[in-house]
Design a binder for these strands. Structure first.
Lengths: 171, 171
DNA sequence: GCTAGATAGTAGGGTGTCCAACTATCTGAC
DNA sequence: GTCAGATAGTTGGACACCCTACTATCTAGC
């Protein structure tokens, strides 16, 4: 919900405007929740755009970068598909999709699980590791350590969302 | 980034784990930023899923619901395509997409702009207004006023994200 | 042992977002 | 007045995500 009344030429905050309208229509009890959800949507959009802009020259998306880093941090640089989906909290089909593309790019490799023939192991290849390291260096410098989230408040953001995730049964 | 070490059987917070790994790898300066961005991604996923679950029986998605509400709140229940994209902060093609489906569902109608023949006005139809009102009532009750965001902290969430958006030049 | 139910992965379908390119139209500078 | 540049909207393509359905395989209960 990001509405702005057209009364003035001043640059209003669309979300604050929506919250005001919500309250005006008798939904004051839900106005904060609406604003919180809408804020989350927009913040996600902003954050994702920044991350993707850095990753694009490296030839990967954030979803695929996450898979590479997950493998990079695992003991043997290899994990079953199902575990990847569980850790990244995405649907199995999303894992299939990401691994398809990573494999086509020569960054990972599918290997049959030695004991369970239903399972498929994804293995990080050298090219994938190199790309992950280079991308991480740039991501850290350009996005994660950048001051668009002021140091004081990003800790607060993490805290609040941690509570939200806990309430949602995330962990 | 949501990684969990496989050491213990305890349900760890994947994001806290990723932050720990980031710090261990000498990226402490970027660990909070990484955790903040990852938190945003996950929170968005959770919030969107809740909203979409409520809207699904009404036959609309959140993106289309936002268009309906924007029209509902406008003076004449009609707005140009371009203005919709600007207010909702999405790409023009996303507006085209949403309006196509809303129009196919008989919820809105495209009308030529009387003065500017480049422009197209989107008009809310009765069915669209009714759907928006019903969906809002349920969304308010089931999601926006629900306690999955504790009343104390959702205000804090809005504040932090407002600052983030302001730093991003959002308004 | 054998079969019912759970689990792993994939294919197909639907939706949202963005980008690049293209048409049509408007606007302002000369 | 004309024409270059800006603006509105659409089309086509790439990606991500989810859901449903389906195959293959494992596991547990009888």
């Amino acid at each position: 919900m990001t509405f702005v009344s057209t009364n003035s030429g001043l640059p209003l905050d669309p979300i604050a405007e929506a919250r005001r309208l919500w309250a005006e229509h008798g939904w004051a009890h839900a106005a904060d929740g609406m604003a919180a959800v809408t804020s989350l949507m927009r913040a996600h959009q902003i954050a994702l755009a920044r991350v993707e802009a850095v990753l694009k020259p490296h030839g990967v998306t954030f979803a695929r970068y996450e898979v590479l880093m997950l493998l990079h941090f695992s003991r043997k640089a290899s994990l079953p598909m199902a575990l990847i989906g569980e850790r990244l909290q995405v649907h199995p089909t999303s894992v299939t999709n990401a691994v398809d593309r990573l494999e086509a790019a020569g960054l990972v490799r599918r290997t049959p699980h030695p004991a369970d023939r239903r399972s498929t192991i994804v293995e990080l290849l050298d090219a994938g590791r190199e790309l992950a390291e280079a991308a991480t260096a740039e991501l850290n410098a350009e996005v994660f350590a950048a001051p668009w989230l002021s140091p004081a408040t990003d800790g607060s953001l993490i805290e609040v969302i941690t509570e939200l995730r806990r309430n949602a049964g995330d962990f």
